[in-house]
Every structure is written in structure tokens, then in C-alpha cells.
Design a protein around this nucleic acid. Structure first.
Lengths: 336, 336
DNA sequence: ATAATGAACTTAATCGATTAAGTCAACTTT
DNA sequence: AAAGTTGACTTAATCGATTAAGTTCATTAT
């Protein structure tokens, strides 16, 4: 491995001079600096991030936390989009990313300890159980964090516009004549609460009454569970004309169930999804859904985290809401 | 930050003793070791991976390289499954993972330089252009590597059983009476070559003649391109009875195109995919496809890489082929 | 009683890079 | 000419942990 010592010997200067020259310090003669840089290139010198991190107390490495209780965090298209854009933005700003998990090999550590152990300059908490004490500990620690879709007190977060998204969907189907709307929702997280509340509120403001059994619990990203919820809806004496699914993938479970009953979309039943993953627009019929700005959420998360890392003293916690957009597919029939 | 120095002061011993005690060195009196461990716990001591890496020349960090030219490496379900299982296995063995990319912030470095810069103990090359000189440089460097779905000379690799997979699919549709098979394939990588060769060979051995225009080029994971290829096939005077798609996602493009022509699956046209991503089994009709053992490929990649890292002198390059399985969906009609 | 052995530590160097403080010669200022 | 200033370096400490090579003292062997 070529180190600054090798360069210093080759150039006949001290290691300090080499370090300064390579970092553009002002007290190095231009031609010395040039000679040093030339040698560094010739020898194939690469700075050692580890040594630099140790001395500077900055690793230029940020942690990313995906702790889906179901264990399939990054395999969901929505989250992998977020990961991809966090990664891209972080790299653009000179940071690498490392996954933060519980338990590393034999040592058992929690998220906070793992982040410290790896000297992460900050952590993006992308998908997690925000009630988990280990998550709370991390979010309340001295480590800069940015959470996605959840806000901890006095901490920075990136939020998807769940309230407006749901409102847009309800208005969209309302305008197409639907009055009997059923909503299958995911686990009762804060996001879900916002969506349910927005669904109810928008319905109410439009004069739509939603029967209690039109609101059905299911599990996010689980076609089976939304299939069951769909079946329950179909068993009701009076059926909805449009079903809201917790997310695009869940819609697929509903789709199979509807098919099994010989119900065709959108002729016999209208449906809308949520997320707007690329798949939703490849499917036929194209799903009407609300596309969350996953890409922007990821890049904003990385950007804000790094700003916070680089200006810790002047940092003011903030929440950014990233707007999405309604994708008008072919799964909502016009009634009347 | 609590360091071994703090512990050494609290216990009235030298830092060396603390280090040894915490690492279970044999020359520390059991009760001293216990006292030190007790203090470490009480003070909330966490080892510093950075310092340890600097001294030991081992970072317990492995790089993962996903460099899809289309830029959407990890957002594909197949690759995100691999990533997830590489991550899980690496963590189980005490390693963290860091993404390796070209260009980090202002510094421009290639993959090899990036891996060195971060002191990665090894790199899993999961998805890349294996002709890229930067990839070749990394794969031929002194850094331990494991490649997926490609073998560099004298290097370890994990291969998916493309030959057997394709053979299984051809035999499957053959047994159901199909004799006119069309194959839409992806970009001509080594994987594609294997699949095309296996397709042709199996057809030949079964006495099936494949017209030249039944073999169509497209692009992996691109529904649009496979849609176009599908259209071209439908324009032929004599059409196939079964279309092989390059992958499950590409099938979706074909599906839309077939639908547009009023062709129903599998009544009017049979199809098979490749990959066996979870989505393929959620769709209706369930896709007949060959499931690659993405999960095992990822965990084997991590396992072999780490073995290689930990026993560099006795390491013999090897290639492991991970078997997949045919998923019998509902997209192949029985003829006759 | 003296030497040898071994257990239980400590000393000090080291990994690679950064940086505050110091040195020294050349140049200005008065 | 003496004093001050500046430019261009060097010295040496430091980040936190590891480890080869001592050191010390108690115990055992001869």
C-alpha cells in the first residue's frame, strides 16, 4: 500500500508537507505541491479513509437503516427506490453508505451501537418500527439522523404527503361518480393513521358516508392479507363500487381474489392503489394509484442528513414533505 | 466516546491489558479480565471499528458492487433479493457491507480504488458489465472477490444454473405439446449466451427446429423492448405457440402486447419467464418460470468471500452453481 | 540457595493521516 | 543595522486499538 510516507520519501519532504499538499493547504509552495501531486499519481497513491476517519473524527460514511419486521426491507420496490436514491445522492456528496442492523456476528449491539462502532457520521432511518426502543435510542442520540415517514421530536424527517395523496385519490373517484368507497389499510402506523384520517375526512367533506365495515385492516405489501380483506368486502350485503388498497403490491392480492369471483376491473369493481411503483404502470389494466416521490424522498434525506452533519451547530430540525402525483390508470370506471 | 484508555484508568491497568482482556487473550488473570469487562460494560464502552481496522489491516467490511448500466441495479427484485441475502449472511459472520461505486463526490476513482479507499476486505460483484476495464481491474486485483453469474479466470464465482434452467423450461413446454418455440433474449452477456445455447441445444435434442426469426433480441428487465419483440413475433406468417421471455418483468411487456392483439394467455399463446421473482406468482395467470436461487446465491457469495478473506493462503478459486426450480404457473397450455 | 520457569502484567512501537506549534532563512520595515 | 514579518517547510502529538518484546515477582526445580 502506498502511503504518504512513501511519497514523502520520494519527494524528500516531510509527511506533513505531503498531507498538506494533497489537501491544498495554503502554506505549500505551488511547485512543491505540484511535484508531490505528480509523485502521488506516479506511485498510485490512494488516501486511506480509515486512517483519515480515525484522526478527523469524520468517516464520510452514513448508515442506512432498513429494519422491516418482515425482514424484506429492501426487496420492496418502494424502499429499494429510496435506497437507490439515498445512495446516489450520498455518493454525489462524497459519502459512502453502510447498512446498520442489530447484531453483527457474535457481538450483539443495538442500532445506536452499531452506528457508533462503524463511526457513521449520521444515519438515514428508512423503514423501521418507530416504537422499537432501539430505534428511539438511535433517534434521540447525538448521532445526526433523518427519518422517513415518521418524525421524532426535534429531529429532521422527510415525509410523504399522505394526507394530500389520499385526498387526491378520494376526490378522483368521487368525480367519477363513486360514492361507496371501501378502504383496506395496512398496519396502524403513523402513516396509516394519516391516510385513514385523510380518507375519512375527505369522504365526510364530500358528503360520503363510509360504513364501518368498509374500512378493513390488512398488512402492507402482503397480497394474501389484502386478498382476504377483499373477500370480506365481497361478502357484505351491500358492496363498495371502489376499493382502496394499502399499496400497489397489495392490490395484486385483491386482483386475484376479484378474478376468482369473476369480477372484472374496472367494469364490475374499481380499485386504486398507493405508492406508484413502476410495476403498477406495467400491469394491465394500469393501476390508478398515487405515486410517492420515493426518489426525491431518498435524495432529500441524504442531502439533509449531510447538511446536518456538516453544519451541526447551526442546524435546525426540519420536516420536508415530498409531494407525489396521482397516476391515472385504467382501474377506475366512470359511473353514471 | 469511551475508549480503552478510559477503562484502563478506571481499572488501574495499562491499555494493553484492557485490549487483551476484552479480546480474551490468555495471559490475563481471570479476575482481572472480569473486572475489566465489568468496567467496560459500566462505562458503555464500544470498540472503534475504524481504529481496529487501521491497526489490524482488516476492516470486517465487504464491498458490494451493483453497477447496472441502466442505473437501476438494486431496484430489480432479483438483485435486491441477492443484496438482501448477501447482507444477511455477511452480518451473520460479523461483516458490514458498503456499496462500491465509481466516483465518490469530487474524487474520481474506479471500483478498485474505491474498495481500497474504504479498506474493504473483499468485494461481491453482483451486477456489472464484465467487459468494463474497471471491473476487470478489480477482479484481477489482490482484493478477494466473488462474482455472480460470471467467472473471471482463477477467481471465485457463484453461478445460476442457466443451462439446466433453460433446459427444464424447454422440456416442460415440449412435454405439453409445444413444438414452435420462440425465444426473446436479453443483451448478449455470458449468461444470455448460455441460455440461448441451452435453448437451441435442448430444442435440437428434442427434434425441434427453431426458425431463425423465432430468436429475438431484447433488453433485460425492459417491458417495452420485449413488447416490441413480441409484436415482431406476432407479425410473422407462422407464429410460435409459446414465447420464452428473457425474464419475468419483460414478460409483462409481452403480456400487454398480446392483450392489445386480443390474444389471451394461455388459450391463444403460451409463455414462460425467467427469474421466478415473487411477483411472478402473485400475477394472474401465475407465470410459468424458472426461479433462480437468488437467496442462496447471495448467501453463498458472502460465505465464500469471507472464507477467502479469512484463509487467503489456502484458498482455491471455485465456482458454485446454485440450482433453481421450475415454477409451474398457468401460462403454458397443453396442446393436443 | 540459586537458577529457571511461568503467570500477569507494562512498555512502546505501530497502523496512515492530520494539524497545532515550532523553525529558519529570506525579505521588509524603520 | 536591528527588529519584525512572511513563506515554506518540519516536528511531534494525536486519533483508538493491537501486539511483540520486555519486566516483575512469586513459585518451583536442582
Amino acid at each position: 500500500m502506498v502511503t504518504i510516507t512513501d511519497i514523502s520519501k520520494a519527494c524528500g519532504v516531510s509527511r506533513a508537507t505531503v498531507s498538506k499538499a494533497l489537501n491544498g493547504a495554503p502554506d505549500i509552495a505551488p511547485k512543491t505541491a505540484e511535484r508531490i501531486r505528480e509523485q502521488a499519481r506516479a506511485l498510485g497513491y490512494l488516501p486511506n479513509a480509515t486512517a483519515r476517519a480515525l484522526k478527523m473524527g469524520r468517516s464520510y460514511n452514513i448508515g442506512v437503516l432498513f429494519s422491516d419486521p418482515t425482514g424484506s426491507g429492501i426487496t420492496h420496490e418502494y424502499f429499494s427506490q429510496i435506497l437507490e436514491s439515498v445512495k446516489a445522492e450520498a455518493e454525489r456528496l462524497g459519502y459512502d453508505i453502510t447498512f446498520i442492523s442489530k447484531d453483527l456476528g457474535a457481538m450483539s449491539m443495538d442500532f445506536y451501537e452499531h452506528a457508533k462502532y462503524r463511526s457513521c457520521d449520521g444515519v438515514v432511518i428508512a423503514s423501521a418500527d418507530f416504537q422499537d426502543p432501539a430505534i428511539i435510542r438511535l433517534a434521540q442520540s447525538e448521532i445526526p439522523t433523518v427519518t422517513l415517514d415518521y418524525t421524532f421530536d426535534s429531529r429532521t424527517s422527510i415525509l410523504s404527503d399522505n394526507v394530500r395523496g389520499m385526498e387526491a385519490l378520494v376526490r378522483f373517484v368521487y368525480e367519477r361518480g363513486h360514492r361507496r368507497l371501501a378502504f383496506i389499510h395496512g398496519e396502524m402506523t403513523s402513516v396509516t393513521q394519516k391516510r385513514v384520517a385523510s380518507f375519512k375526512k375527505t369522504c365526510a367533506s364530500l358528503g360520503i358516508t363510509v360504513p364501518g365495515d368498509f374500512i378493513r385492516p390488512a398488512v402492507y405489501h402482503d397480497p394474501r392479507s389484502s386478498g382476504l380483506a377483499t373477500r370480506a368486502l365481497l361478502a357484505l350485503p351491500e358492496q363498495p363500487t371502489c376499493i382502496f388498497y394499502p399499496d400497489d403490491l397489495s392490490f395484486l392480492g385483491g386482483m386475484s381474489e376479484l378474478e376468482r369471483h369473476g369480477i372484472s376491473i374496472p367494469k364490475d369493481m374499481s380499485v386504486v392503489g398507493y405508492d406508484g411503483i413502476p410495476l403498477s404502470q406495467i400491469l394491465r389494466p394500469r393501476l390508478t394509484t398515487y405515486r410517492q416521490g420515493a426518489e426525491r424522498m431518498g435524495s432529500e434525506a441524504a442531502r439533509l442528513l449531510i447538511e446536518q452533519i456538516e453544519h451541526p451547530d447551526t442546524w435546525l430540525p426540519q420536516s420536508i414533505t415530498v409531494e407525489g402525483e396521482l397516476l391515472e390508470g385504467d382501474t377506475v370506471r366512470i359511473i353514471g
